[in-house]
């Protein structure tokens, strides 16, 4: 197999993430997850509180005001992937720059 360029791998990975969140997510199981199920069965959730941001525009992975369930969930997924990619890349870019300046990681204190 030929060597895949880093840029190609990154673009392919990002496209895959967009498709999974934007399209495939519609077919995900709607059942409660492991913790939700156990919590409901055993009574752990007796004092559960509503999420403070339950009315946020993207709450529960659907876009407020978009009625079509498939489109609403897919759009929320795509926006989430985009936002996570931006924030994550930003954070790691800054961390990498700070690491790069030192060159000798052991040199910085503590």
């Amino acid at each position: 197999m030929a060597k895949v360029r880093t840029r190609t791998l990154l673009i392919a990975g990002a496209l895959l993430a967009l498709v999974l969140a934007g399209v495939v997510s519609f077919y995900a199981s709607q059942s409660p997850d492991g913790l939700e199920k156990v919590a409901a069965d055993k009574g752990i959730d007796a004092k559960v509180e509503d999420h403070a941001l339950a009315d946020a525009p993207l709450a529960d992975y659907s876009v407020k005001g978009v009625d079509n369930e498939r489109f609403s969930g897919g759009l929320a997924g795509v926006l989430g992937v985009g936002a996570t990619l931006l924030v994550g890349t930003g954070v790691f870019w800054v961390v990498k720059r700070r690491g790069g300046e030192g060159a000798q990681p052991a040199a910085d204190g503590s």
């Binding site: 993430a17 997510s25 992937v81 990619l85 930003g90």
Partner: peptide
Amino acid sequence: APLAGLVSAFIFAVQMLNFP
């Protein structure tokens, strides 16, 4: 560094895919 950003986004996407 760019790969780490992608890993975050990929995990976000796959976490949406609940399986029975």
